[in-house]
Design a protein around this nucleic acid. Structure first.
Length: 147
DNA sequence: ATTCTAACA
DNA sequence: TGTTAGCA
């Protein structure tokens, strides 16, 4: 195990003041949320100044979003966690199944997403098409060397 | 200057 | 939850 660089994310560390400013959640709330176990600071020494991973700001923002929609704090945390899990599933699907994305219109961000074979025998692939009409699926024949 | 805990008009 | 006070 020499090169164990699983992630290329820089581990940015921020203080409670910065986290508060960038999320709009008060420091009082952040401390309370941590006390309740909803968020966590890195290496939680009991009496040191709190340090948070930058990624925590996304969770805080998500919780605040649901809070602003009228959910209770507990429910907001629940929803934020559910959102995170759904995103993980989306990520797995995208990384696992999307083979290529062809840009068809730079001006309007239209394109075609190659989602792979539906049937190996019939040489058909399914595509996700984004165009002026919105988006839809298409089943197309494909050549062995199409590029 | 900033963050900490604890407590409360 | 905000907002203090008194510390580090």
């Amino acid at each position: 195990m020499i090169g164990k660089k699983k992630s290329l994310k820089a581990d940015i560390i921020i203080g409670i003041g910065d986290l508060s400013k960038m999320t709009g959640v008060s420091a009082r709330q952040l401390r309370y949320w941590e006390e309740k176990g909803y968020i966590q600071a890195v290496s939680g020494k009991k009496n040191a100044t709190r340090k948070y991973k930058f990624e925590m700001s996304f969770k805080v923002q998500a919780i605040k979003r649901y809070l602003d929609e009228g959910y209770t704090l507990a429910k907001s945390v629940e929803q934020a966690e559910k959102l995170r899990k759904k995103f993980e599933i989306w990520k797995k699907f995208l990384v696992g199944k999307v083979q290529e994305v062809e840009i068809t219109d730079t001006q309007h961000n239209y394109g075609v997403i190659e989602l792979g074979c539906v049937d190996e025998e019939q040489k058909k692939k399914i595509y996700g098409v984004v165009d002026e009409n919105g988006c839809h699926f298409e089943l197309r024949d494909y050549a062995e060397a199409d590029n």
